[in-house]
Design a protein around this nucleic acid. Structure first.
Lengths: 130, 130
DNA sequence: GCTTGACCTTCCTATCATGGGAAGGTGTAG
DNA sequence: CTACACCTTCCCATGATAGGAAGGTCAAGC
């Protein structure tokens, strides 16, 4: 399987597969005589794991830690759970921060007439600072 | 006022003040004979506006649009409100995406014993892909 | 066999916002 | 006069991703 097919099968772009290899997140695959990367089903499996971890908001570095745990059959499930819950806390913190911004801004907007007149409490408040 | 004092007074780092000037977000300030940037109270006011807009999650580019609206006394408040509400929608979308990740992951974690045994549904599920 | 087009390779560049640091000039207090 | 804090510009790094250029490879069709 060439990189394009591995990309198709895993949902990770060829560009990103090469990048993940370059930074050491995944193992360099076999090469054909002409230098093409050759992927086996196992590699695609790993790539899918990476894609799914990324889609759950894990950074590439955290994904590397998860991969190591995935491959280490002797680690305690408590280690994995701790990592996951720590990440949940970070995600919820970020979500709350964004939601707080949205709420503040929505509040400011609710005081703005939104007509043709120029006076606007949104800009007034941003300008007043806090 | 030198850049350090302007940074202190506005809450924007000296590094970022120079950067904002370089990309054209803010006007180049006056310079002293020796080439030091010299800021007036008005400049600090603008910097505070920028800091506050950034803290509400507006990108630098959007902040530039807000600044233009702020300075244009003839614009309709509806224009500002539309921009603000569009941004609110984007913020809430991002917040919801993060919260969805957190919820999924918390769900996975709830099925993990979290003890010394190695079997862990979190990694199993990430590996299984979806 | 030869051409064409799809694919692969590496390498360089960009994004966005921010910080770090080097090398060198300035300003001020002791 | 010296020390130290501050300023200047310039370059580099981050994290994850995309775009593109220049050149090699492979398979299908003529």
């Amino acid at each position: 399987m060439n990189i394009g097919q591995a990309a198709e099968a895993s949902g990770v772009s060829a560009k990103m597969i090469r990048y993940y290899e370059q930074i050491g997140l995944i193992e360099p695959p076999a090469r054909s005589q002409s230098g093409y990367r050759v992927y086996a089903e196992q590699n695609v499996h790993t790539l899918r794991f990476v894609r799914r971890a990324r889609s759950l908001g894990f950074s590439v570095e955290e994904t590397g830690a998860l991969l190591a745990l995935w491959r280490d059959r002797s680690r305690a499930s408590a280690d994995v759970k701790a990592l996951a819950l720590k990440h949940v806390a970070e995600l919820e913190e970020k979500a709350a921060a964004l939601q707080a911004m949205a709420t503040t801004l929505r509040h400011l907007a609710s005081h703005c007439h939104g007509d043709r007149r120029p006076d606007c409490p949104i800009l007034d408040e941003i300008g007043a600072g806090s």
